[in-house]
């Protein structure tokens, strides 16, 4: 008798199982989708009471400005605060004061330094102009970097340790995941040597305008 029911019964059971499985798969992809959506939403400017460092019982979380209120209107980014701070400044979206004391001399420099790098990574362009909009010369010279070009050995090892460029980049300015924003001058005929799992398109796609 088993033989006689074999094909039909087996098929029916098989189909039910597949249907259940595909149902499960749909639920699972829903979980994935939901996770991605909630992750994307949660990734943007949590209220202070939920940011993990403010005490939700503190009176301050009700009084202080919420990040979303301040940051949502600024040039968007995919990293850091999700704000392009240099562009926000250039566009006049923010107008931060340059000095507190009247006698302070505001110093700016419009000069690019090209730092060639070993290996296949594109060379680094360091623009003084954007940096001196925010910083004074003494913030880097002659402590972190010697004033004379080429006199300081700069390494990614140091930077990843939070030294040199990494004092700011990775803490308050765009993070070290954004390789191509610094390594921006491609070497002729060379492709950047990146770890195999780095998707160059993602990094290049992030660049909206220079």
């Amino acid at each position: 008798m088993q033989v006689s029911i074999f094909p039909a019964e087996f098929l029916r059971r098989g189909l039910t199982l597949t249907r259940r499985l595909s149902g499960l798969r749909v639920v699972l992809s829903g979980v994935l989708l939901g996770g991605v959506i909630s992750g994307a939403v949660a990734g943007e400017w949590l209220p202070l009471a939920k940011d993990g460092i403010h005490d939700p019982r503190s009176r301050a979380v009700k009084i202080l400005q919420a990040p979303r209120e301040a940051l949502a209107g600024l040039v968007p980014d995919n990293a850091g605060n999700q704000v392009r701070w240099v562009q926000a400044l250039e566009k006049g979206e923010i107008r931060p004061r340059e000095k507190l004391f009247p006698q302070t001399v505001v110093r700016k420099l419009d000069q690019d330094i090209i730092l060639d790098v070993k290996g296949g990574m594109p060379a680094v362009r360091f623009p003084h102009r954007q940096h001196t909009e925010w910083l004074d010369c003494v913030n880097c010279h002659d402590g972190v970097f010697k004033t004379q070009t080429g006199a300081t050995k700069i390494t990614m090892f140091n930077i990843l340790q939070g030294e040199q460029c990494g004092i700011c980049h990775g803490a308050v300015s765009f993070p070290l995941t954004e390789c191509m924003r610094c390594h921006s001058i491609a070497k002729a005929g060379k492709k950047p040597e990146l770890p195999p799992d780095v998707n160059m398109l993602i990094h290049q796609g992030r660049e909206r305008s220079p």
Binding site: R97, E98, K99, L100, T104, W134, V138, V172
Partner: peptide
């Protein structure tokens, strides 16, 4: 983030 909207880095870190 709050402070850099109102002051450049150099105000606190230099002045």
């Amino acid at each position: 983030w709050f402070h850099r909207i109102r002051f450049r880095c150099k105000v606190c870190h230099a002045e």
